[in-house]
C-alpha cells in the first residue's frame, strides 16, 4: 500500500496502476514509457497520478489461474483497474518482453 499515491495508465485496453513511489520517471514520445527501478513499462496513455485509490486485495483462489501477483483491484473513473506489484510485473506490460 502506497501512501504517496498511484500512477494510472492504460495499456492493452485495461487500466493499470503503480505505486508512484516506485516510479522513477516518465518519458514521452508516441508511446509513453514508465521507468521503474527494475524495469520499464510501455503505456498507451498515462492518465495521471491519483493520491488515493480504494484497494481490494485479490482472492487467493485467483492465484491458481493468474501466476503474477498484484496488489489488488480498484476503481478509477467508474472503470476497474489493476494495481500492480512492481516486483512481479506481467511480461506483456514490460518493455522488451511483450
Amino acid at each position: 500500500m502506497s501512501e504517496r499515491g498511484f500512477l494510472v495508465f492504460r495499456r492493452l485496453g485495461v487500466l493499470w496502476a503503480l505505486p508512484v513511489d516506485q516510479v522513477t520517471s516518465l518519458s514521452g514520445g508516441a508511446t509513453p514509457e514508465i521507468h521503474l527501478a527494475s524495469a520499464s513499462l510501455s503505456a498507451d496513455e498515462v492518465l495521471g497520478v491519483v493520491p488515493h485509490l480504494p484497494l481490494w486485495p485479490a482472492p487467493a483462489s485467483l492465484g491458481r489461474w493468474w501466476p503474477h501477483t498484484f496488489l489488488g483491484f480498484s476503481v478509477f473513473a467508474n472503470q476497474p483497474l489493476v494495481v500492480l506489484q512492481p516486483e512481479t510485473l506481467p511480461p506483456m506490460l514490460v518493455r522488451g518482453e511483450a
Binding site: 500512477l7 508512484v20 513511489d21 520517471s25 516518465l26 514521452g28 509513453p32 495521471g48
Partner: peptide
C-alpha cells in the same frame, strides 16, 4: 502538450517523492 503532460506527470511524481 504530450511532453508538457509527461513533464507535469514527472513533476507530480517528483513532487510526490518530495513529500
Amino acid at each position: 502538450a504530450q511532453e508538457t503532460h509527461i513533464l507535469a506527470l514527472n513533476a507530480a511524481i517528483e513532487a510526490t517523492a518530495a513529500g
